[in-house]
């Protein structure tokens, strides 16, 4: 999709002009908010975060043939920084992922998925 298709050129009032969805999916909003909150809780400096995210995004070169979306990189970077800070080990995350996967499979379609711990 080109930029001009993404942005409708019709000017809109500040109150309701959004330029389309800011987040492509709810998980993107979730990981964004978790990053801000983890920063506020003192897990990392914002400067450190910018460096890790920048390094992650730089893997795509200039990004012109990027295979991953912006928030895919964001999520990779978030896992990286939490690992580096000793907050989230890859084994812990792997176990939790498996637990969530089991919970989803045990949940009838349409029901909220809950993790029983």
């Amino acid at each position: 999709m080109t930029l001009s298709e993404t942005i409708q050129s019709i000017p809109r009032l500040p109150l309701d002009q959004d330029g389309g969805p800011v987040f492509g999916a709810p998980w993107e909003a979730r990981v964004f908010a978790m990053t801000v909150k983890a920063h506020e809780a003192g897990v990392f400096e914002w400067r450190e975060w910018a460096e890790v995210l920048g390094a992650e995004l730089a893997k795509d070169g200039d990004g012109s043939d990027a295979a991953l979306g912006y928030y895919d990189h964001w999520l990779n970077a978030f896992e990286t920084i939490l690992g580096a800070k000793g907050v989230a080990g890859s084994d812990q995350l792997k176990d939790l992922k498996a637990a969530w996967d089991d919970a989803a499979r045990a949940t009838p379609h349409g029901q909220p998925i809950e993790l029983v711990r």
Partner: peptide
């Protein structure tokens, strides 16, 4: 199998992070 729910790999990663950070008290 459309009878049960399914989360994508990326959703599983995000939920795993949220659970862990919540349990450790970093996020609410």
């Amino acid at each position: 199998d459309h009878e049960h729910s399914e989360l994508s790999d990326i959703e599983l990663r995000v939920r795993a992070l949220e659970t862990l950070l919540t349990e450790k008290g970093y996020i609410d």
